[in-house]
Nucleic acid binder design. Structure first.
Lengths: 254, 254
DNA sequence: AGCTGTGAACCCATTCACAGCA
DNA sequence: TGCTGTGAATGGGTTCACAGCT
């Protein structure tokens, strides 16, 4: 039953194999929970820096911006790391979550496409302070080759296979224009990258076993615009013009 | 009952008021659908640019990276814009979705925090090409004041109230460090901004009626890392080394 | 014949409410 | 007594499968 797979995109069939020696508890953690673990982790780090040693689910939930029932349910998928009647030990829980996510080890990351956004990402301190180390910056524009960025040089995209192999890179960030994103993605995957964070505004096709997450800046704004529009309409409605042409449905043919 | 609110964060109670003259059809479109509309819109624009006049739900779904049942269900919330036996008229559907989202009008946007990321956002062409126009860049660092960026000057954060008022800004983007984000947010809200896109890695508290969306770069990577770790574990299991210390579980006390 | 639009079934996620433990 | 951990209830979202229209 349920079988704990889930996996997002692509062929429904399988996922990663996992085969053999399946002796681990195999606690299938829901995807929605996984997406919140980093938020809890950050909240715990904040509490920790403030010198707080213990917290209740209520306090942690507030710090993370969720409600406490959800927090407790989420944590229950990881194990029983709290103490009834008392709460959670901040350091201990922090370590457990970090381990579960996989950020106790550190992950070499390649960024492809060093335009404005790529620059910003390369300099973003939030990566290195978690377990992510930017180990390579690639760009196909010859004009940018060799440019220094912090302590790193921008290299040609052709070096990708070598670099992925030598530096054991599993995670790639795509910050190229949309038109080149699929090609870059294919090259990354062929070279052995199995997780991709895509900033290019385009849908990427990848084989099963490769994870893609997408960050689309203009989509986020569009979602806000939708709600903003509704607020404006609601307001106009309240102010009560006879019948504001909310949606005149002036449809010209079909 | 249910009352079509949903609203993400904060106080469960209400949301935006919407009050009075509630006679409009009030088609409550699910939040999940709203988040996909911009994706469909982009796919339609691509088809349109390729000169394709008509498409089936199957084709559009593929272009958008979803399955066709989901696409049809989503579109059904907007109305019946297709033709049975034929498909959808690309231009027509594009217009309908754009109108529903609210990107037929254009939205003045302020960006606060012009560091690396703020620079990148200010130059990002994806905003202006949808209905978003960056009309102000603010920073509190005096060293950056007056700096030109494209055809815009960086202004002091103090001008915020005036600018929001004069330019009728409803949407703000926060790209400051985490520590200042809540203060900036409060000032934006006080000045009249009611939608915020937050790039700072921190939870923002806002009053009801204000929408916040969060883009957190390192959280995205952490989610990938989680899956990557599982892939690695599965693989090690299959290859079957005696017991690679992937995760020694060296937990010290409780 | 073909494709959309949609009720119904299913599945996942959130919330409730309380049992269980310190 | 107080807080965690969790079954059970609820609600939303996705998928199925087909009725309805062109």
């Amino acid at each position: 039953m349920t079988s704990a797979r889930s996996t997002r995109n692509g062929t429904p069939g399988e996922g990663v194999s996992r085969s053999a020696s399946a002796r681990a508890p195999e606690r299938g953690i829901p995807e929605a929970t996984i997406a919140r673990l980093p938020v809890y982790l950050r909240a715990l780090i904040t509490l920790s820096e403030r010198g707080i040693a213990t917290c209740s689910s209520e306090e942690l939930a507030t710090a993370a911006g969720v409600n406490s029932a959800k927090l407790r349910k989420d944590l229950s998928y990881l194990g029983s790391y709290g103490t009834r009647g008392v709460g959670y030990d901040v350091e201990y829980l922090r370590y457990q979550i970090a381990r579960e996510i996989g950020v106790t080890q550190d992950w070499p990351v390649v960024i492809v496409g060093i335009g404005n956004l790529g620059h910003a990402l390369a300099n973003y301190s939030g990566f290195s302070s978690r377990g992510f180390r930017i180990v390579a910056l690639l760009d196909s524009d010859p004009a940018r080759l060799g440019e220094k960025l912090g302590d790193m040089r921008i290299r040609g995209f052709d070096e990708i296979e070598t670099l992925v192999e030598e530096l054991d890179i599993a995670i790639g960030v795509i910050a190229t224009p949309a038109v080149s994103a699929q090609d870059v993605c294919d090259r990354l995957v062929a070279a052995g990258v199995t997780s991709i964070l895509n900033f290019a505004p385009t849908v990427l096709n990848v084989p099963a076993g490769v994870d893609v997450r997408k960050v689309d800046l203009s989509i986020e704004l569009q979602i806000l615009a939708y709600h903003e529009q509704r607020k404006a309409l609601a307001f106009d409605g309240a102010v009560d013009i006879v019948e504001p042409p909310v949606d005149p449905r002036v449809v010209e043919s079909a």
